[in-house]
Simulated scan of single mutants.
Amino acid sequence: MAKPVKPVTARGEQTRQKLLQAAEQEFGEKGFHTASISSITQRAGVAQGTFYIYYASKEDIFKALVKDMGRKMRHFLTEATEGITDRLEIERKGLVFFLQFALQHKNLYRIVMECQFIDEATYRDYYEGMAEVYAGRLKRAQETGQIREGDAHAQAWVLMGIAVFMGMRYSIWEDALPPQAVLDTATDFIASGLTP
Protein backbone atom coordinates (compact mmCIF):
# COMPACT_ATOMS: atom_id res chain seq x y z
CA MET A 1 0.00 0.00 0.00
CA ALA A 2 1.43 3.39 -1.00
CA LYS A 3 2.22 5.92 1.68
CA PRO A 4 0.22 9.18 1.35
CA VAL A 5 2.19 11.90 -0.39
CA LYS A 6 3.17 14.86 1.79
CA PRO A 7 2.51 17.97 -0.33
CA VAL A 8 5.55 20.18 -0.91
CA THR A 9 3.63 23.34 -1.81
CA ALA A 10 0.97 25.37 -0.02
CA ARG A 11 -1.39 24.68 -2.92
CA GLY A 12 -0.77 20.95 -2.63
CA GLU A 13 -1.51 21.08 1.10
CA GLN A 14 -4.75 22.98 0.37
CA THR A 15 -5.78 20.25 -2.05
CA ARG A 16 -4.96 17.55 0.47
CA GLN A 17 -7.01 19.37 3.13
CA LYS A 18 -9.93 19.71 0.69
CA LEU A 19 -9.81 15.96 0.09
CA LEU A 20 -9.74 15.22 3.83
CA GLN A 21 -12.67 17.59 4.50
CA ALA A 22 -14.65 16.02 1.68
CA ALA A 23 -13.79 12.54 2.96
CA GLU A 24 -14.98 13.52 6.45
CA GLN A 25 -18.36 14.51 5.01
CA GLU A 26 -18.60 11.50 2.70
CA PHE A 27 -17.61 8.85 5.25
CA GLY A 28 -19.56 10.58 8.01
CA GLU A 29 -22.78 10.71 6.00
CA LYS A 30 -22.57 7.45 4.06
CA GLY A 31 -20.21 5.20 5.96
CA PHE A 32 -17.06 3.64 4.56
CA HIS A 33 -18.62 0.98 2.34
CA THR A 34 -21.11 3.27 0.60
CA ALA A 35 -18.69 6.19 0.21
CA SER A 36 -16.81 6.48 -3.06
CA ILE A 37 -13.66 8.16 -4.30
CA SER A 38 -15.63 9.89 -7.06
CA SER A 39 -18.00 11.42 -4.50
CA ILE A 40 -15.06 12.55 -2.37
CA THR A 41 -13.40 14.26 -5.33
CA GLN A 42 -16.71 15.87 -6.38
CA ARG A 43 -17.19 17.25 -2.87
CA ALA A 44 -13.59 18.49 -2.87
CA GLY A 45 -13.97 20.06 -6.31
CA VAL A 46 -10.93 18.28 -7.73
CA ALA A 47 -10.40 15.85 -10.60
CA GLN A 48 -10.53 12.17 -9.70
CA GLY A 49 -6.96 11.70 -10.91
CA THR A 50 -5.83 14.29 -8.36
CA PHE A 51 -7.00 11.98 -5.58
CA TYR A 52 -4.38 9.39 -6.56
CA ILE A 53 -1.56 11.93 -6.27
CA TYR A 54 -2.23 11.93 -2.51
CA TYR A 55 -3.87 8.58 -1.71
CA ALA A 56 -3.68 5.13 -3.24
CA SER A 57 -7.18 4.01 -2.24
CA LYS A 58 -10.34 4.71 -0.28
CA GLU A 59 -8.76 2.82 2.65
CA ASP A 60 -5.71 5.10 2.56
CA ILE A 61 -7.69 8.31 2.80
CA PHE A 62 -9.92 6.80 5.48
CA LYS A 63 -6.91 5.94 7.64
CA ALA A 64 -5.33 9.33 6.96
CA LEU A 65 -8.61 10.98 7.95
CA VAL A 66 -8.75 9.18 11.30
CA LYS A 67 -5.18 10.26 12.06
CA ASP A 68 -5.89 13.82 10.90
CA MET A 69 -9.03 14.07 13.05
CA GLY A 70 -7.10 12.83 16.08
CA ARG A 71 -4.39 15.45 15.50
CA LYS A 72 -6.96 18.21 15.07
CA MET A 73 -8.77 17.24 18.25
CA ARG A 74 -5.57 17.11 20.32
CA HIS A 75 -4.47 20.46 18.88
CA PHE A 76 -7.89 21.99 19.62
CA LEU A 77 -7.80 20.76 23.23
CA THR A 78 -4.21 21.88 23.76
CA GLU A 79 -4.98 25.37 22.49
CA ALA A 80 -8.22 25.55 24.49
CA THR A 81 -6.48 24.76 27.76
CA GLU A 82 -3.27 26.69 27.07
CA GLY A 83 -2.16 28.79 30.00
CA ILE A 84 -4.12 26.79 32.58
CA THR A 85 -1.69 25.26 35.07
CA ASP A 86 -4.08 23.54 37.49
CA ARG A 87 -4.68 19.96 36.30
CA LEU A 88 -8.21 19.72 37.72
CA GLU A 89 -9.15 22.93 35.91
CA ILE A 90 -7.61 21.53 32.71
CA GLU A 91 -9.81 18.45 33.12
CA ARG A 92 -12.94 20.58 33.66
CA LYS A 93 -12.27 22.86 30.72
CA GLY A 94 -10.97 20.01 28.57
CA LEU A 95 -14.21 18.06 28.96
CA VAL A 96 -16.31 21.05 27.88
CA PHE A 97 -14.00 21.79 24.96
CA PHE A 98 -14.03 18.15 23.86
CA LEU A 99 -17.84 18.18 23.88
CA GLN A 100 -17.80 21.36 21.79
CA PHE A 101 -15.34 19.76 19.36
CA ALA A 102 -17.57 16.69 19.07
CA LEU A 103 -20.58 18.93 18.43
CA GLN A 104 -18.71 20.67 15.60
CA HIS A 105 -17.28 17.41 14.19
CA LYS A 106 -20.17 14.97 14.47
CA ASN A 107 -18.67 12.73 11.79
CA LEU A 108 -15.74 12.04 14.11
CA TYR A 109 -17.71 9.45 16.07
CA ARG A 110 -19.01 7.53 13.10
CA ILE A 111 -15.66 7.53 11.35
CA VAL A 112 -13.61 6.50 14.39
CA MET A 113 -16.11 3.80 15.41
CA GLU A 114 -16.24 2.42 11.89
CA CYS A 115 -12.44 2.41 11.76
CA GLN A 116 -12.29 -0.54 14.15
CA PHE A 117 -13.84 -2.66 11.38
CA ILE A 118 -11.89 -1.13 8.49
CA ASP A 119 -8.41 -1.02 9.98
CA GLU A 120 -8.08 -2.08 13.61
CA ALA A 121 -4.45 -0.94 13.84
CA THR A 122 -5.40 2.64 12.93
CA TYR A 123 -8.32 2.50 15.38
CA ARG A 124 -6.05 1.34 18.19
CA ASP A 125 -3.38 3.91 17.29
CA TYR A 126 -6.02 6.65 17.52
CA TYR A 127 -6.88 5.84 21.13
CA GLU A 128 -3.51 4.52 22.28
CA GLY A 129 -1.70 7.60 20.97
CA MET A 130 -4.17 9.85 22.73
CA ALA A 131 -3.85 7.87 25.96
CA GLU A 132 -0.05 7.97 25.83
CA VAL A 133 0.06 11.78 25.61
CA TYR A 134 -2.68 12.12 28.23
CA ALA A 135 -0.93 9.75 30.65
CA GLY A 136 2.30 11.75 30.32
CA ARG A 137 0.49 14.92 31.33
CA LEU A 138 -1.26 13.19 34.20
CA LYS A 139 2.04 11.72 35.40
CA ARG A 140 3.57 15.21 35.51
CA ALA A 141 0.55 16.42 37.49
CA GLN A 142 1.08 13.53 39.94
CA GLU A 143 4.73 14.46 40.36
CA THR A 144 3.80 18.04 41.31
CA GLY A 145 1.11 16.84 43.73
CA GLN A 146 -1.80 18.28 41.74
CA ILE A 147 -3.56 14.94 41.40
CA ARG A 148 -3.44 11.68 43.30
CA GLU A 149 -0.82 9.10 42.52
CA GLY A 150 -1.75 5.99 40.61
CA ASP A 151 -1.39 4.39 37.22
CA ALA A 152 -1.46 7.42 34.91
CA HIS A 153 -2.41 5.25 31.93
CA ALA A 154 -5.42 3.87 33.79
CA GLN A 155 -6.43 7.40 34.74
CA ALA A 156 -6.11 8.50 31.11
CA TRP A 157 -8.31 5.67 29.81
CA VAL A 158 -10.98 6.35 32.46
CA LEU A 159 -11.05 10.08 31.67
CA MET A 160 -11.17 9.39 27.93
CA GLY A 161 -14.08 7.01 28.49
CA ILE A 162 -16.03 9.69 30.33
CA ALA A 163 -15.45 12.18 27.51
CA VAL A 164 -16.20 9.74 24.70
CA PHE A 165 -19.50 8.56 26.14
CA MET A 166 -20.64 12.02 27.24
CA GLY A 167 -19.84 13.22 23.72
CA MET A 168 -21.90 10.42 22.23
CA ARG A 169 -24.82 11.03 24.58
CA TYR A 170 -24.98 14.81 24.27
CA SER A 171 -22.96 16.16 21.33
CA ILE A 172 -24.07 13.43 18.94
CA TRP A 173 -27.45 12.10 20.10
CA GLU A 174 -28.80 15.32 21.65
CA ASP A 175 -26.99 17.74 19.31
CA ALA A 176 -26.26 20.01 22.28
CA LEU A 177 -23.89 20.49 25.16
CA PRO A 178 -25.02 18.80 28.38
CA PRO A 179 -27.02 20.85 30.87
CA GLN A 180 -24.87 22.59 33.48
CA ALA A 181 -26.02 20.17 36.20
CA VAL A 182 -24.71 17.25 34.13
CA LEU A 183 -21.37 18.98 33.53
CA ASP A 184 -21.10 19.78 37.23
CA THR A 185 -21.80 16.14 38.15
CA ALA A 186 -19.21 14.87 35.67
CA THR A 187 -16.52 17.33 36.72
CA ASP A 188 -17.21 16.66 40.42
CA PHE A 189 -16.84 12.95 39.69
CA ILE A 190 -13.54 13.59 37.90
CA ALA A 191 -12.27 15.85 40.69
CA SER A 192 -13.19 13.26 43.33
CA GLY A 193 -11.23 10.64 41.45
CA LEU A 194 -8.16 12.81 40.94
CA THR A 195 -7.88 15.00 44.03
CA PRO A 196 -4.97 13.88 46.23
Rank of each mutant, 00 (worst) to 15 (best):
Lys3Leu: 10
Pro4Phe: 08
Pro7His: 12
Val8Arg: 15
Thr9Trp: 06
Gly12Trp: 10
Glu13Trp: 10
Gln14Asp: 10
Thr15Asp: 02
Gln17Ser: 12
Gln21Leu: 10
Gln21Met: 09
Glu24Gly: 03
Glu26Lys: 01
Gly28Asn: 03
Thr34Pro: 00
Thr34Tyr: 08
Ala35Arg: 02
Ala35Asn: 02
Ile37Thr: 04
Ile40Thr: 02
Ile40Gln: 02
Ile40Pro: 06
Ile40Val: 11
Ile40Asn: 01
Ile40Asp: 05
Thr41Val: 07
Thr41Trp: 01
Arg43Glu: 04
Gln48Tyr: 00
Gly49Met: 00
Thr50Phe: 00
Thr50Cys: 00
Thr50Gln: 02
Phe51Gly: 03
Tyr52Asp: 00
Ile53Val: 06
Ile53Ser: 02
Tyr54Ala: 01
Lys58Asp: 01
Lys58Ser: 02
Asp60Pro: 01
Phe62Glu: 00
Lys63Ile: 04
Leu65Asn: 07
Val66Ile: 10
Met69Gln: 15
Gly70Arg: 15
Arg71Ala: 14
Lys72Gly: 13
Arg74Cys: 13
His75Phe: 13
Ala80Lys: 09
Thr81Gly: 10
Thr81Asp: 13
Glu82Asn: 08
Glu82Gly: 10
Glu82Met: 09
Gly83Trp: 10
Asp86Val: 08
Leu88Pro: 00
Glu89Met: 08
Glu89Asp: 13
Arg92Ala: 11
Phe97Pro: 01
Phe98Ala: 14
Leu99Ile: 09
Gln100Gly: 09
Ala102His: 08
Leu103Ser: 10
Gln104Glu: 15
Lys106Asn: 04
Leu108Ala: 13
Tyr109Ala: 07
Arg110Val: 03
Ile111Gly: 06
Ile111Phe: 04
Ile111Glu: 00
Val112Pro: 12
Val112Cys: 09
Cys115Glu: 06
Gln116Asp: 12
Ile118Phe: 06
Glu120Ile: 11
Tyr123Met: 08
Arg124Ala: 12
Asp125Lys: 12
Gly129Val: 12
Met130Cys: 10
Ala131Met: 09
Ala131Tyr: 14
Glu132Asp: 11
Glu132Leu: 10
Gly136Ala: 03
Arg137Glu: 14
Leu138Lys: 06
Leu138Ser: 03
Lys139Ile: 00
Glu143Asn: 06
Glu143Thr: 01
Thr144Ala: 08
Gly145Ser: 05
Gly145Lys: 02
Gln146Arg: 06
Ile147Leu: 04
Glu149Cys: 01
Asp151Val: 04
His153Ile: 03
Ala154Ser: 08
Ala154Arg: 05
Ala156Tyr: 05
Trp157Ile: 14
Trp157Arg: 13
Trp157Asp: 02
Trp157His: 05
Met160Tyr: 13
Ala163Asn: 13
Phe165Glu: 15
Gly167Tyr: 07
Arg169Thr: 07
Tyr170Gln: 10
Tyr170Asn: 12
Ile172Met: 06
Glu174Ile: 02
Leu177Arg: 06
Leu177Ile: 09
Pro178Ser: 12
Pro179Phe: 04
Gln180Val: 14
Gln180Lys: 15
Ala181Asp: 15
Val182Asn: 01
Thr185Val: 04
Thr185Ile: 01
Ala186Glu: 08
Thr187Pro: 03
Asp188Gly: 03
Phe189Cys: 12
Ile190Asn: 00
Ile190Ser: 00
Ala191Glu: 14
Ser192Cys: 11
Thr195Trp: 05
Pro196Gly: 05
